[in-house]
Design a protein around this nucleic acid. Structure first.
Lengths: 204, 204
DNA sequence: TTTTATTGATTGATCAGTCAATCAAAAATA
DNA sequence: TATTTTTGATTGACTGATCAATCAATAAAA
């Protein structure tokens, strides 16, 4: 079997497997064996390519954050007006992939991990900043800078909050309702600031 | 030493120690030894009283949720109008105790744990419902029922979101700013619904 | 032949949980 | 009151399981 050039293939398989296992398990206390098995290789190989469990976990965060970023960039490009771009950012955050229970569970686990792993924390900080900044950039086109900052902060918090609340699956709010709630927040805060900017009305 | 009636003392000491250790550590992967040491007893005693690590962790969640509940009830009693009661709920959520980095880290860890432990999940669901319900009850006095439900959902999400974002300590939002953001959300959504209900203006 | 891919077997550390033994206060008894 | 018995509190030492990490060995390209 040993064909040359397996490294990237194995790395990707392991990173994907890690995300799946973590999501199922709902926690980062997963074994290298589980991940390796899921990826169809031996635990030893996982260590061979990643050096340590922590490193594999970090690469996993990085990889999936990259994916989220790509989706956001694409969605924003497709949108024309600032208001549409705002909606695009929101939609990506609540896209089905992101909203799958295993994905939510995995993110949650990473948030917890960020308390201990400096590097994991760094990645999540980047995510948090990016979300805020994407919102801010477009809001600035719709209202004064200070208001934009306030609204961006609030919207980012609401998105993360809807996300984390979803993880409890108690009173599951649908994707559509989550989007509507966020849109309404932005509309309501924008309304008194710019006479006619708020249009994008959504149904619960 | 063996005075009788140590049980409640030890249980409380262990539960408090657990919260502290978890908070410091930023994770539930703490050892019984660490917790016991922090509480000033042997690991064996912790097992003697709680039976298992999981049980100690569950009691820890229960205990602290109880505390949060008590604070909320007290704060709501002190407030007179529905609008003031709303503010009271918000203030308690962002009270200094709750907002301490270790407390936030601990809650986050419990959220992650809830993915695996049915009982932990139950407690957090109770918390989530209670927050929503406290908001809802008072909002219903200020606007139509459907609007109240929507706003309660949004406010609860925003509170949790501000909370989780705080855990990254990247762009630390102050307690006051967090409160202001939540109040503004409620005011802004309430404004068009009831001509004069929104008053409680707060500064960033 | 050299290099890359891959694994089985093993090691060392860490922990939750157990248990038998100890110690001292309380309760019972003399 | 003095003495004995009982019981709750507490621990040190141990066990068994789990896992990350290592490594030497193998197999197949190049």
């Amino acid at each position: 079997m040993p064909k040359v050039g397996m490294e990237p293939v194995r790395r990707k398989a392991l990173v994907d497997a890690a995300m799946r296992v973590i999501g199922d398990h709902g926690s980062l206390t997963v074994t290298m064996s589980e991940i390796a098995k899921q990826a169809g290789v031996s635990p030893a190989l996982a260590h061979h390519y990643f050096g340590s469990k922590e490193q594999l976990l970090i690469e996993t965060v990085r990889h999936h954050l990259q994916r989220l970023r790509d989706s956001t960039v694409t969605a924003m490009r497709a949108a024309k007006t600032p208001r549409e771009k705002l909606s695009a950012v929101i939609h990506v955050s609540f896209h089905a992939d992101q909203f799958a229970p295993e994905t939510i569970a995995a993110w949650l686990a990473f948030y917890a991990e960020a308390q201990r792993s400096e590097e994991t924390r760094r990645f999540l900080v980047i995510y948090a900043r990016r979300l805020r900044s994407n919102l801010l950039a477009n809001l600035k086109a719709l209202c004064p800078r200070e208001d934009a900052e306030r609204i961006a902060e609030g919207a980012a918090a609401m998105i993360d909050g809807l996300y984390i609340r979803q993880s409890l699956k108690s009173a599951p709010i649908s994707i559509e309702a989550s989007i509507a709630l966020t849109e309404d927040y932005i509309n309501s805060l924008l309304a008194p600031l710019s006479g006619e900017a708020a249009v994008q009305r959504t149904e619960t």
